[in-house]
Computed example of a mutant assay.
Amino acid sequence: MPRLRVLALLSALALSACGAPQLSVPVGDVTAANFGDRKPFDWPGQSPDRYAVHGIDVARFQQPLNWGEARVSGVNFAFIKATEGGDLLDPMFQNHWEGAGRAGVARGAYHFYYFCTTPEKQARWFIENVPKTAGMLPPVLDLEWNPFSPTCTLRPPADTVRRNAQTFLSILRAHYGQQPVVYTTPEFYAQNDMGRLRGVEFWLRSTAAHPSEKYPDERWTFWQYTSTGRVPGAAGDIDINVYAGSPSSWDNWLSRRQVR
């Protein structure tokens, strides 16, 4: 069973003051969250604070982190953007990937889906840029509408969305040996009847209500609860997430779901 490390704020500040060393904590050991929020939400009922295992997701919008400081401050896992569509590689992927790995953060890579490119091409692009690495988390497929795309605002019918998603997921599962996790938003989930996807675990966005309110009857493994979080070791706003279970179930989940 992993140890729950409750780290005092004073200790974290002292570490930062001494040159902000790139510390490492073993993957699976749960460190307690010492986070803030620029726009905190007054959670009624089921607050994210009731969950022990917190983590973040990052992309090119986040500059290099002090991953060691983030790790001891409660970043137990990180989903890192790798690719988008069939030809875009996130320029910060390698930096975030290596930094998280050195600090003992359980790390996974995600792909932002592009509705104007075939799922086969997108899956090949992800595989080309994300090496199969022992211990990594399952890959993630990020499914959401992107109305701000300069080149593609296509919104296919729901059955096409689900069919193409299954194609992408199947290719990645065959390569990495793990069924990918699916990230989505309330609007996208409802409009495309994403509950009909079978055999997947969900990472759900819900920043003003518990997922049980936004996604009735859906099971979830990860919950993204804010996009304005503040995490030691990271500059500016950052997305924060929780894992659905206890520290002991996190340990069990890792043992089942890490890539071999």
Rank of each mutant, 00 (worst) to 15 (best):
residue 254 L to A: 08
residue 20 A to T: 12
residue 250 W to G: 00
residue 54 H to W: 15
residue 150 P to D: 04
residue 67 W to D: 15
residue 98 E to W: 00
residue 223 W to D: 11
residue 85 G to W: 03
residue 139 P to E: 07
residue 106 A to S: 11
residue 176 Y to E: 04
residue 33 A to F: 15
residue 235 A to S: 13
residue 80 I to T: 02
residue 260 R to Y: 09
residue 163 R to V: 03
residue 9 L to Q: 11
residue 221 T to A: 10
residue 107 R to Y: 04
residue 252 N to R: 07
residue 242 V to R: 15
residue 120 E to R: 12
residue 173 R to H: 07
residue 190 A to F: 00
residue 127 I to E: 03
residue 87 D to T: 05
residue 56 I to N: 06
residue 135 G to D: 06
residue 112 F to Q: 01
residue 19 G to S: 00
residue 170 S to C: 10
residue 75 V to L: 10
residue 212 S to A: 05
residue 63 Q to V: 03
residue 12 A to R: 02
residue 51 Y to G: 01
residue 235 A to Y: 07
residue 126 F to E: 03
residue 21 P to S: 01
residue 28 G to D: 03
residue 199 G to A: 05
residue 67 W to N: 08
residue 45 G to V: 14
residue 86 G to Y: 11
residue 129 N to A: 07
residue 259 V to A: 02
residue 32 A to F: 02
residue 134 A to W: 08
residue 168 F to E: 03
residue 19 G to W: 11
residue 82 A to F: 05
residue 228 T to Y: 14
residue 163 R to C: 08
residue 51 Y to I: 05
residue 196 R to E: 13
residue 251 D to V: 06
residue 4 L to C: 13
residue 97 W to E: 08
residue 163 R to I: 05
residue 54 H to N: 01
residue 139 P to C: 07
residue 108 G to T: 10
residue 71 R to T: 04
residue 234 A to M: 00
residue 245 G to Y: 00
residue 254 L to Y: 09
residue 258 Q to T: 12
residue 229 G to M: 06
residue 228 T to P: 08
residue 101 G to S: 10
residue 19 G to T: 01
residue 81 K to P: 03
residue 68 G to S: 13
residue 209 A to N: 08
residue 236 G to S: 09
residue 259 V to M: 12
residue 234 A to P: 02
residue 168 F to N: 01
residue 27 V to A: 12
residue 106 A to G: 04
residue 211 P to L: 01
residue 126 F to Y: 12
residue 81 K to I: 00
residue 102 R to G: 06
residue 105 V to Q: 12
residue 112 F to H: 01
residue 11 S to W: 14
residue 46 Q to T: 10
residue 178 Q to L: 02
residue 95 N to T: 15
residue 174 A to C: 12
residue 28 G to Y: 04
residue 26 P to W: 05
residue 168 F to Q: 04
residue 200 V to A: 10
residue 80 I to H: 01
residue 37 D to N: 03
residue 198 R to S: 14
residue 62 Q to K: 13
residue 170 S to R: 15
residue 223 W to C: 04
residue 118 T to G: 15
residue 124 R to S: 07
residue 182 V to L: 13
residue 9 L to R: 12
residue 159 D to M: 05
residue 179 Q to V: 14
residue 203 W to G: 01
residue 92 M to T: 10
residue 233 G to E: 13
residue 252 N to L: 11
residue 41 F to L: 06
residue 81 K to T: 00
residue 249 S to L: 14
residue 132 K to A: 03
residue 130 V to A: 02
residue 133 T to A: 06
residue 150 P to G: 09
residue 14 A to W: 13
